[in-house]
Design a protein around this nucleic acid. Structure first.
Lengths: 176, 176
DNA sequence: TTATACTTTCAAAAGTTTTTGAAAACTAAA
DNA sequence: TTTAGTTTTCAAAAACTTTTGAAAGTATAA
């Protein structure tokens, strides 16, 4: 604990801001189908200049060892967190991907594979339906409109994933 | 039940395709934080040329009255489903928004308000933190990078919401 | 007014996801 | 080897979300 009064006050406020940020990131994550704790671990590592070990994360977020381990593992899987070994230290340390553009890119990549691609597959399967009633034509029209939309999104996301930050910014500019 | 064999077979296949579509839409929805049943009701109405009443929906999706009612209500809230009254009929019928572009627009509008805007608010609150340590500067750098990203996304989504389908298509074209 | 046809509500039940923590597995050094 | 520090696993518990269905509410018509 800091002892000088002004340092103490400052420290509380920065910690409060960090806490608030971590909580907000957790809420955002869970709205987007990402486990709340996973998002919080990510937030904590984003704003930590130094690598943290599992015990640091457990203590700072007040979560169990199993929970910490599972979510760190998932973040490494998603390419949002990296292991960092310290010379002469046995325990593993972790750092977060700090470049927001890479963060967004990894998330898009993951969710596209998990969600958009299966939908495209189902759409093309159901387009294969037999018969020739009006009812079938109506159904196919709906499916085809969604297909047009979804393929466009799919191609656009591929471009995004394979592009760099400057490309994104210049595209944003063009859009406005 | 249809009695001619070919009609019967055709009917089964179209129904299978519709079922598959409804299930896929439900899965997509639940991956995106939208209740599975809500997405299924939406899918059912999307591919129904005629308006359906609560009992039709209950029967077709095999769900309870309460569940049907709640999810129809939520879809109306989101602007994805509309009430339609039939002359001389007491019960309410429902139709789905068929224009995919409007569907996507409504969803973006809803989620932007619910998710992006609160995050922007928190980001600007935490930027206000006191003190002047290196630690604070590092924290502010991360927050500010996210803010730049998030505001850009916010403005782009506003443009999207207020634009028409042709604008979207021409933007997609420019992007590629 | 009363009956009827419907819609809405909500508490309890069912289902799903997340978290815990203790035990097992691993790994490096003694 | 054996020990000690560490990570991983996983079954059970807790937390959270969704669904049910019966009861209450509402509106129309007889």
């Amino acid at each position: 604990m800091k002892t000088k009064k002004n340092l103490y006050i400052y420290s509380m406020e920065l910690d409060d801001a960090k806490q608030k940020f971590i909580q907000a990131w957790g809420t955002l994550g869970s709205n987007w189908g990402i486990n709340r704790t996973m998002a919080q671990v990510h937030a904590l590592l984003l704003i930590s200049s130094d690598p943290l070990c599992a015990d640091d994360i457990m203590e700072m977020l007040k979560i169990s060892r199993g929970n910490a381990n599972m979510n760190i593992r998932a973040l490494i899987d998603w390419g949002l967190v990296f292991k960092e070994l310290k010379a002469g230290e046995r325990r593993e340390y972790f750092v977060g991907e700090k470049d927001m553009w890479n963060v967004v890119r990894q998330i898009i990549k993951h969710r596209k594979k998990k969600e958009l691609e299966p939908v495209l597959k189902v759409l093309s399967e159901v387009s294969d339906v037999d018969g020739n009633s009006q009812d079938k034509e109506d159904f196919l029209n709906v499916v085809e409109e969604i297909q047009r939309f979804a393929s466009k999104a799919d191609r656009t996301l591929d471009k995004l994933i394979n592009s760099d930050a400057n490309w994104l910014v210049s595209t944003f500019m063009k859009m406005m």
